[in-house]
């Protein structure tokens, strides 16, 4: 049995498929590729395959991670190539590495941050306003975001400031905001919520379809507390 960590990208129309559908897409890709996944025992065996972190519907990604276990031992290159030969349009294996079999910690368990970009595709010109207000926005001690909780059946308020590690804006041909946000068990933040708050702070209408979100990378903290991209995770 071998364990692998696969970094992949999800771009184009396929960004509109959900997390659950993506899992099935991968399962079918594995079947086509001939790579033999391990299966759990039981009446309804399921393949041992899982994502480090779900990606919201509509997001692109250039840094998502999939962990899987195979019955047969392959070299990581072989696995990535086989998968790429059978991926549907829009999915691509970027790199693959073998995880130690013994260390059973999943990548999902160590995840601390995820980096996102939000690209503006609307027809307004909000650059100046956003630029001017970014510093003041981040200088706040707390940023309260109100969301309706289905579970509690009422609006709940959360402070999202602690989950914003950094946020910056560049404007060349396009207006792009880059954000490093909390992810994983220790607290996570969806960039859409942040952008909603930021736009409100700037007095701008937030229109979801004006923004294209991309997940760029995921990070974990090593023993010394340094942030490292997830593909360096040893398992």
């Amino acid at each position: 049995m071998s364990r692998y960590l696969l970094k992949f990208s999800k771009q184009g129309g396929i960004r509109f498929i959900s997390h659950l559908d993506l899992l099935r897409v991968f399962q079918r890709t594995f079947r086509r590729s001939g790579l033999k996944l391990s299966y759990s025992n039981g009446f309804n065996p399921h393949a041992k395959i899982g994502f480090a972190m779900p990606l919201s519907l509509g997001f692109e990604s250039r840094g998502d991670y999939l962990e899987f276990e195979t019955e047969v031992d392959y070299t990581p290159q072989e696995a990535a190539e086989q998968l790429n030969a059978h991926m549907p349009p829009g999915l691509k294996a970027l790199m693959c590495r073998k995880l130690k079999e013994t260390g059973k910690t999943a990548a999902a368990a160590v995840l601390r941050y995820a980096e996102y970009t939000a690209e503006y595709r609307g027809e307004q010109d909000p650059v100046r306003l956003l630029q001017e207000r970014l510093e003041a926005f981040l200088a706040q001690d707390s940023i309260l975001s109100v969301r309706y909780s289905k579970k509690k059946r009422k609006d709940v308020e959360t402070d999202i400031r602690p989950n914003i590690h950094s946020m910056s804006l560049i404007h060349e041909k396009k207006l792009i905001l880059t954000m490093m946000l909390g992810a994983g068990n220790t607290g996570s933040l969806n960039p859409q919520i942040l952008m909603k708050e930021f736009c409100a702070f700037c007095g701008l209408d937030y229109e979801e379809s004006d923004w294209l979100y991309t997940r760029k990378e995921m990070y974990f903290a090593d023993a010394k507390g340094h942030l490292k991209p997830l593909y360096e995770f040893g398992g």
């Binding site: 498929i17 519907l57 349009p89 379809s209």
Partner: peptide, 14 residues
């Protein structure tokens, strides 16, 4: 597509 249920039904590219 960012505003509808089941956007995958309209995007093609399968």
């Amino acid at each position: 597509l960012t505003k509808v249920n089941k956007p995958a039904s309209y995007m093609g590219g399968e």
